[in-house]
């Protein structure tokens, strides 16, 4: 116990002597000290540099990370703002387009004396074998089977089924659809039947009928469903047969049936 305490004191004394000795030599700028310092510095300098660089890099990286976190936060915030603004722009564009469509509908309503019910298209046919759409108005709004459905452009189809709040509309391009129609310029009559998604055919046109591409086809009012004068489509091709009693015309529906959003149901004709 005693030995351990005395060696401690001796160590302390040694430390003090060495320290003071070095301090004294240093104050006197002894060459040996300078050389020793240089050597130590030379040996330690690269290690120091590496450690220092690494530390700095880690420090920078950390600072960068902190900055990045800040930037990321800012970025997220800006993205959210951008998304919100885009949504607002989209809503604005959507409202503008809807407004344009509704103005056209209003114009159509004012020009015609029909009692109309505006409906939104809520669904499209699930099968490839029929062409139908679903609208959000039903018997509660006076919709029933066999009422004509139109847009401001022209005929869309007719209601084939109506539930309380929705109805199924058979498009004019469905093969089961038939519209009694006439060529506006020549007044020749025929039946427009569906053919495929984009076309219909006008059948039973007299052979002597003078048809040309671009002729407007309108409803004749004879079928009992569509009032007279509604635009059905335009003639896009004429199929004249050598034999037979009639000729046929290919018709492109005037209304864009693949992009319908709102339609009118004519609940009461003029």
């Amino acid at each position: 116990m005693r030995g351990r305490r005395s060696s401690g004191i001796w160590s302390l004394i040694l430390l003090m002597v060495a320290s003071f000795g070095l301090l004294t030599l240093n104050l006197k700028k002894e060459k040996a000290i300078t050389t020793l310092e240089s050597f130590v510095l030379a040996v330690l300098s690269p290690v120091h540099g590496v450690i220092n660089n690494t530390t700095r890099k880690v420090g920078n990286a950390w600072a960068g990370y902190l900055d990045l976190v800040q930037v990321q936060k800012e970025n997220t915030k800006l993205r959210a703002e951008l998304s919100k603004l885009r949504e607002q722009v989209n809503t604005g564009v959507e409202l503008q387009q809807q407004n344009k469509r509704l103005l056209q509908f209003l114009d159509f309503k004012e020009k015609n004396q029909y009692e109309l019910v505006l409906a939104q298209v809520v669904g499209i046919d699930s099968s490839n074998w029929s062409r139908a759409i679903f609208i959000n108005r039903g018997s509660r709004d006076g919709i029933r089977a066999n009422l004509p459905v139109v847009t401001h452009e022209g005929v869309v189809g007719r209601v084939i089924e109506a539930s309380a709040d929705s109805a199924k509309v058979l498009l004019v391009t469905d093969p089961r659809s038939a519209v009694d129609a006439l060529i506006q310029s020549s007044r020749d009559t025929g039946i427009v039947v569906g053919d495929d998604e984009r076309h219909a055919r006008m059948k039973y046109l007299p052979l002597e009928a003078n048809l040309k591409t671009g002729d407007l086809v309108i409803s004749s009012g004879l079928g009992g469903i569509f009032p007279k004068g509604l635009v059905v489509g335009r003639v896009t091709g004429v199929m004249k047969q050598k034999f037979g009693l009639f000729q046929e015309a290919e018709i492109a529906p005037i209304a864009n049936l693949s992009r319908l959003e709102e339609v009118f149901v004519i609940v009461k004709g003029s």
């Binding site: 499209i124 046919d125 490839n128 062409r131 998604e197």
Partner: peptide
């Protein structure tokens, strides 16, 4: 399946025909 068929698939139609998911 039918919701996909009536909402997404009409946009993928070729000549008015789309895959029949059912």
């Amino acid at each position: 399946l039918l919701i996909i068929q009536t909402t997404i698939f009409p946009r993928l139609s070729l000549g008015g025909v789309r895959p029949d998911l059912a």
